[in-house]
Simulated assay, not measured.
Amino acid sequence: MANAKMDRTVGSCSVTRERILDTAIGLFSTKGYAGATTREIARQAGVAEVTLFRHFASKEKLFEAVISHYSALPGLKSLLPKALELPYEEALNRMADLLLDTLIQLKDWIRIMHAEVLHSPDKLMGIFHSFLDEIFDFFASYFRELQKRGELRDFDPEMAARVFHSMFYCFFNMEELLGRKHHRATDRNKAVKEFVTLFIHGILARPWSFADGNV
């Protein structure tokens, strides 16, 4: 009986902590670290401010918890084995879609990083670049494996990963963070297919090499 009561208490604490984190990320995203108060976070989370401080010793600790909590990329990592079994173009389309879904899911977190990284470079730069490195490593691992199989030519897989990521990060930034979709909407499926095609085939009408001397 005592164990069941303890389990319920632990579960309730976990739910409360998640509710505080979910509320905090929204307020930090819209109001910034300085503008979001623990009183307002607690009120919107439906808890007393003293309860918030039981879970997080200070506003700074809450902010650090938000940054750490929402930086994981499990969905992206789990796609790699499946992607390696798909035709190349289809795999890139699937990975691009999942990357965009992931970025949209983390939109508030990314907005916070954009806004706050210059104010706390020592604290946030490492976290943000670790997040980017995980994405780069995912795509680089995919390109590297296809190179081992002889399906792709020799190139720097990490540079290719950064190029591929940059196309879709820019699209996400324009559409979601800067709100372009509300003024001049772009069909996402069409954009993904077009970007992938450009990545694979480039824009020249025929293959070109440096030996040609000119285009």
Rank of each mutant, 00 (worst) to 15 (best):
L124M: 08
L132E: 14
A72W: 06
V66R: 04
K193Q: 15
Y169F: 14
W109S: 05
P157T: 03
M167G: 06
A42I: 00
E134M: 00
L99P: 02
I41Y: 03
K31M: 12
T16H: 01
F172A: 06
I25S: 05
E145H: 10
G32K: 08
R111A: 15
A160F: 05
A48G: 12
W109E: 11
H129P: 01
D7Q: 09
T38C: 01
A96P: 01
K31V: 05
F138E: 10
G213H: 07
V192G: 10
F164G: 09
D137F: 02
R39W: 01
L178W: 09
L118D: 13
K107V: 08
P81L: 13
D137E: 13
T23S: 06
C170R: 15
F28Y: 06
N3P: 04
L86N: 09
A57D: 03
F131W: 15
C170M: 10
I135N: 07
L76M: 14
L80N: 05
F143L: 09
F138C: 03
L98M: 07
R153E: 14
H165A: 06
V196Q: 08
L27E: 06
A24F: 04
A57Q: 05
E49Q: 07
Q105C: 11
R39N: 00
A57F: 02
N173M: 14
L124A: 08
L178N: 12
K190Q: 15
S58A: 01
L21S: 05
L76A: 12
G75I: 13
A160T: 02
A72K: 11
T102Y: 08
S78A: 15
R180M: 13
E49D: 01
N3W: 04
G35T: 09
A45C: 08
L106R: 13
E145A: 01
L52S: 04
E89W: 00
S209M: 14
R184V: 04
G179V: 12
V47H: 01
S209L: 11
Y33A: 09
E89T: 13
A2L: 03
N173K: 08
H114E: 15
D156L: 15
A65Y: 10
A91L: 04
N3G: 05
I25R: 06
E158T: 08
